[in-house]
Design a protein around this nucleic acid. Sequence first.
DNA 1: GTGAATGCAAACGTTTTGCACAGAA
DNA 2: TTCTGTGCAAAACGTTTGCATTCAC
Lengths: 133, 133
Amino acid sequence: MPDHSPGQPLRLTRQRQAVADALEDDDQFRSAREIHAVLRERGNAIGLATVYRTLQLLADHDEVDVIRSADGEAGYRRCSDTHHHHLVCRTCGATVEVEGPAVERWTRAMAEEHGYDEVSHTLEIFGVCARCR
Amino acid sequence: MPDHSPGQPLRLTRQRQAVADALEDDDQFRSAREIHAVLRERGNAIGLATVYRTLQLLADHDEVDVIRSADGEAGYRRCSDTHHHHLVCRTCGATVEVEGPAVERWTRAMAEEHGYDEVSHTLEIFGVCARCR
DNA sequence: GTGAATGCAAACGTTTTGCACAGAA
DNA sequence: TTCTGTGCAAAACGTTTGCATTCAC
């Protein structure tokens, strides 16, 4: 349930549409720069600052997930309906989505046990995939 | 079991000792800037770059945990011996260590199921603690 | 004495912001 | 016509790096 409370008008522009489309076409986490590059390649002129502003807007409205990689770059991905995690190859970057109620339950239980509310979590699994071994 | 393999000599300097001490006195995640400020306050002159270099060194030797906050700043904290995860308050940053074999088993199982090897994982739980609510 | 470690400042890459202009509504 | 959204370039931010100097060994 995205917030969509139009305290401000929220205009539909070509650029916002383009960023949303780019995210729709992709189920990997992408950096702002990658998204910007893809749009330019498609001939869709857009400023990097606008990409950032749009991504932040989408994040505020819970329409994209944001992840922070170890090097400090932020990755953005459209929210899928089901919550899941990523199994990433350390060598080639190949990503598999995994999900399971076990972790979800465990994290929530841990949080409640310590009196924490409004719980969310991030979990990434790293390894070396079969092909890279 | 820190690596301590002295391919390079690894010298004990006043500055490295100071950073290690600062981490020892604290069981919260602290940014490099915070650590730098604390040391200066104590009259322990040290350059910010040295703080960064030392923290990176400690991280390489698995002597500190590194966490990435949403705003891109890195947090450092001394490692405890057992593998565990963190329950962090989104508002005040209060951190609780949690551990449990359930997640460990689950991540390993998921990785193996997809043919991944040399598995590691990162898991952070975020919420709002009782005091901040 | 030798080479690793430091400090400083400059460089770096990512993200944010100020401002004049463009374009949805 | 209005006022949000955009582009650009500059600034800000955390972090890294080059280099002359210092200091642990």
